[in-house]
Design a protein around this nucleic acid. Structure first.
Lengths: 370, 370
DNA sequence: CTGTTAGCGCGTTCAG
DNA sequence: CTGAACGCGCTAACAG
């Protein structure tokens, strides 16, 4: 109700008729029980009357804890991330932490700069959302002793906690689904091999198909450089050019799948009539594209929440750390793998009854543009 | 390369063989020119060697400027916001500011709490993304003297800068487009009346149609409570129930339009064959739903950038403020209205040749579920 | 349970 | 152009 500007602890203390330190203890939840309830009440009242708000910069300077977490996301406008971010923010807020959001664009230079600025700000921890495997930062962050959790990146580094979807299980579901429908000739538009999701999903698919007695011909197993519609287009064109037969395309990500659908459409190949397509992630609106995409739902919001919970647990754990344990302070490292769910929609169906054949003549494939 | 942890200015000063104050001046861009170039170079070198990183908590405590901005967004996982956030982050980063992202869910209580915590953190400014008109916070923020910019909310408060799309022009384009196609009986699923976008778009539509000599019958002019697919469904069902004739539905937002498309589909009313539909915003994937949505593109990323620029301008302006000007410090308040663009896709076409009639019998309208 | 004292790391006076 | 001293607002240690 009042200004709250420039009101310091000493003002509250004077107003309440107690010493500044007493006011501090009364107002800080962690130390409130060290003060007489009646005194605490008086302080509360004075603080409320004056509109006092603690100065966190001062507290941070004193305690070396900023109660802020740095969240590094390549690009929040890519649809995979917003639900994750929301999950992160929700959990952090619950524990009194705030989220500093930075865009990395997966640019190493930029990342280093941003992390440096976050360290300068004294963030208590990092959440690093990236699937890229080469990530020099990780070694740094761990080395520099700032608690870190990676998000959407399967654990490869034993020293940093991680949260990732169960890519293998998702691909196993996809494989089972397609084989049950009767598909035997399956093509694969794989995600980038320098991402953990790309690798894990590709491996999961191959393993599952192997168990089912189906193999993917190398000529119809193509990789992409990035997760994007354009890359999906490029890769699917290559598939068609190969002339090899297939009745289904498994992709590593919904955007790649959208690109595949575009290429099928431009070549007048019916989906799912002639060729089935699957995606991964279940991004928003995937139920509304045409045909509605069969895909693997990744619990994005829950992944964000989990990452934040893991980080907060470390943060709180560290604070209460007794120095009893000698040796390197064993921060508990955990690797959470969250369950995924196959969502069957309209882009998958039985293969054509006349069996697998080249879905299109080479000459009919449109040349790539641009 | 080195740890950077626990390295203080005094360490750098000692390493460089100068006084701590000199090191401070050399390292701070604003005061660097007050020190001898050779001395500055020595300090730089020492800082680099030691991996020094300024402690921003200390600087903030001293200077009362945190170089952080609080960004309040109802829910980052709603597709309108991520591109805005990206724009904000990009511009802020350019000027050395960081973004603290909070989720408000448009809950007033929560908002107050969050704003209080941001003030406690000493943020230098706020960006408030909300279209809701009643916003007590605004008065507060302005009153408390923290520079604020509203985003996606047309100026109603003269004291706070704002960035908003040109809703009127967008609706004028929609009206012109539909009338040119031959539509004379137009229905309207309006956005919430307690939002500035809802109001401005509704007003813009009515005005434009008025100029074109077309009026919307009150029975086919329905409002919604929120921008959501479910509300679009509810409102469109009401439209059909009314029995009044129309050949086009103009909606206040893409989600409402998706709901309208759902209801048309469930009643086997062809779009655009029997009824055309328009949206607003051009959210991601609107080119891929069926039918691809004719809508008004709002420059979300650019709006984010603009909001951040306006805020930074205020922040920098304030710092350089000479006390020469007596009276209330006139922070420059600006209201930016960004141009929009009509994107014509497949959901609009000529009205049926047999003219306007009730697109569906009352009895055929499915009852609302739930 | 409360008061006293000291200092977190920095920027900014004021002298020289 | 550089050095000395002070204090931003708070909390942690130590007394009492």
């Amino acid at each position: 109700m009042t200004t709250g500007r420039g009101i310091r602890l000493r003002d509250v203390a004077r107003e309440a008729g107690v010493h500044i330190a007493t006011a501090s203890r009364a107002l800080n939840p962690r130390t409130r029980d060290r003060v007489h309830p009646r005194t605490a009440a008086k302080v509360d009242e004075a603080a409320a009357r004056l509109g006092y708000e603690v100065n966190l910069a001062a507290r941070t300077l004193r305690t070396q804890r900023s109660e802020m977490v740095g969240v590094l996301i390549p690009d929040i406008s890519r649809p995979l991330y917003p639900p994750m971010m929301r999950g992160i923010v929700d959990v952090l807020e619950q524990h009194g932490y705030s989220a500093l959001l930075l865009a990395t664009d997966e640019d190493e230079q930029r990342e280093r700069r941003l992390v440096a600025s976050l360290r300068a700000r004294g963030v208590d921890g990092f959440i690093l959302a990236t699937a890229h495997l080469r990530h020099p930062l990780l070694a740094d962050a761990a080395t520099l002793g700032v608690p870190t959790v990676t998000l959407n990146r399967t654990a490869t580094d034993a020293s940093v906690s991680s949260v990732a979807p169960d890519n293998e299980a998702g691909m196993a579901d996809v494989a089972t689904h397609l084989v049950a429908l009767g598909h035997r000739h399956i093509a694969h538009v794989a995600g980038p091999t320098d991402t953990s999701t790309g690798q894990a999903r590709a491996a999961g698919l191959h393993q599952a198909l192997g168990r089912l007695g189906v193999t993917i011909e190398p000529v119809v197993d193509v990789a992409t450089d990035t997760y994007s519609i354009a890359e999906g287009v490029r890769a699917t064109r290559r598939l068609l050019m190969s002339g090899a037969p297939f009745t289904a395309i498994v992709t590593g990500n919904d955007l790649l799948a959208l690109g595949a659908l575009d290429v099928l459409r431009e070549n007048r190949i019916d989906c799912p009539g002639q060729v089935s397509v699957t995606g991964f992630n279940d991004l928003p609106m995937m139920d509304r594209v045409t045909p509605a995409l069969t895909t693997v739902r990744v619990p994005q919001y829950e992944m964000g929440r989990t990452a934040a919970r893991l980080l907060v647990a470390q943060l709180l754990g560290e604070g209460g750390e007794d120095e009893a344990s000698a040796g390197p302070v064993a921060v508990e490292v955990r690797h959470e793998v969250l369950p995924v769910e196959l969502i069957v929609r309209e882009s998958t169906g039985r293969p054509p009854t006349n069996g697998a054949r080249r879905p299109s003549g080479r000459g009919r494939v449109r040349a790539a543009t641009g």
